[in-house]
Write a protein that binds this DNA or RNA. Structure first.
Lengths: 245, 245
DNA sequence: CGCACGATTGATTAGGGTCAATAATGGTGG
DNA sequence: CCACCATTATTGACCCTAATCAATCGTGCG
């Protein structure tokens, strides 16, 4: 059930069978959500950590006047912040984009696990640091890249993240994001996203239709995006640390 | 020596005298840096956690073609990510803006401290979560706010962060940031920052000169920025948690 | 005193936004 | 199976915010 998370964590460190069993054991209370449903709302009290098993979701904020910014996308195997339950209330919302299946890991369960399984703990911290790095890269994306570069960068990032958990098929992956959502994630309008996608298709950078993304030439897309994958810290970063607990 | 960090953490939870003494004990190897000096560079191996005692610094990334984005500002009492040393190499750089005094907390020292002092640990996690929230808010800032709103928001955030650690004097605080740096933080050009500052001064929103910022009417500035301070999670959030270890 | 860096201003351009209409798509119920 | 409705995608015309290019002016400081 948790193979996506496990597969992702193994990009950082090797996990023992016991580690994996412990992680599997997390999937007790599975929650199902329909597209568009709020998983958690601004102002809610976070009681547990959400672990996404299936489906896509977005983390977003809405300004008083309606302007909306998507701050991150969740895909299978993703985890919202490790210790959210420390905070009194959510400063943003998370909504399902597709049907979503997730586990709500209670505070005590997570803390207990981190007490007893240092290797998992370290891998989860890696996950947390990578998420922070992704958030920083989005800052760069919004602050210093052009419309085409922003979209290309987002496609690169998501394609590589999905590939890392085995959710790509050759150079194709699911991509259930509307142009309005792309706009809200890249700081553009949906009209301009549409025009930029047209340009990208004409340049042969992407094939995007029917909720599917195909990247005919990843190197070209990376170049167009000024994409440097170092911030994803894949490639078994943990190799420099002891393999023992 | 560490009063800024301690004062900040106390916005989240009450610390015992022992807790404070332990934190004070961190300031062993103090490092001094000149303005403009790199504290850590992209590609470097992070060996410890940096704790800023004095001075301002910026976390930034530079694209191949020279475009630069500042992703965050460090002020006294700030801490770079708790577990950076888990990663193999830095995906960004940190540079001193003013003369900087910082402590490099070695990995073992930090882990040991977290083992033995759960209340401090929880406070440090709060710090980490707040930093993540700030990074997300910057995403919103760059993605969905106008030039004036972005600058106003940045001024609000920094003023409130500084006030939280006692580094404001009435409605005035130090502000050693050049217009070029403001531009790199807000995704604008320095020319446009200059024009926007002029507009803000004319509107009576700020007084900015001689590396000093005065906010004559914080409510007005907040309004102009669409600033909602909830993401800073001040106001003793930890009150809902047990005061015992 | 002069030099560098930062601030300021003007003129012009361009990337992306706004407004508005139309065309596809896809799910639903009869 | 098909008509219908609601999203989502696409396109055109026009506008505006912020970028670019290029001087000039301050000012702290060695």
């Amino acid at each position: 059930m948790l193979h996506h998370l496990i597969r992702k964590l193994e990009h950082f460190t090797r996990l023992s069978d016991d580690d994996k069993a412990v992680l599997q054991g997390l999937s007790r209370t599975v929650r199902l959500l329909e597209p568009g449903a709020d998983i958690i709302r601004e102002g809610d009290s976070p009681e547990h950590v959400n672990l996404f098993l299936d489906g896509w979701a977005s983390r977003y904020k809405q300004l008083e006047d309606g302007r909306r910014q998507i701050m991150s996308f969740f895909v299978p195997g993703d985890l919202c912040d490790l210790h959210v339950f420390i905070l009194r209330e959510m400063d943003h919302a998370i909504a399902a984009i597709t049907p979503v299946r997730l586990v709500q890991v209670p505070r005590e369960v997570l803390l207990g696990l981190m007490d007893r399984h240092p290797r998992i703990t370290r891998a989860l911290w890696w996950e947390t640091l990578v998420n922070a790095a992704i958030q920083r890269e989005w800052t760069v994306n919004l602050g210093r890249r052009t419309a085409l570069e922003r979209l290309a960068h987002l496609f690169c990032e998501l394609f590589i993240r999905l590939r890392a958990i085995g959710l790509t098929d050759g150079n194709t992956c699911a991509f259930p994001i509307t142009q309005l959502e792309l706009a809200d994630a890249t700081g553009l309008t949906s009209v301009h996203v549409n025009r930029t996608l047209k340009e990208m298709r004409a340049a042969g950078l992407i094939i995007l239709k029917g909720r599917q993304l195909t990247v005919p030439d990843l190197a070209a897309l990376r170049k167009a995006a000024l994409f440097n994958p170092n911030y994803l810290h894949l490639e078994r970063d943990g190799a420099h640390l002891s393999a023992n607990a």
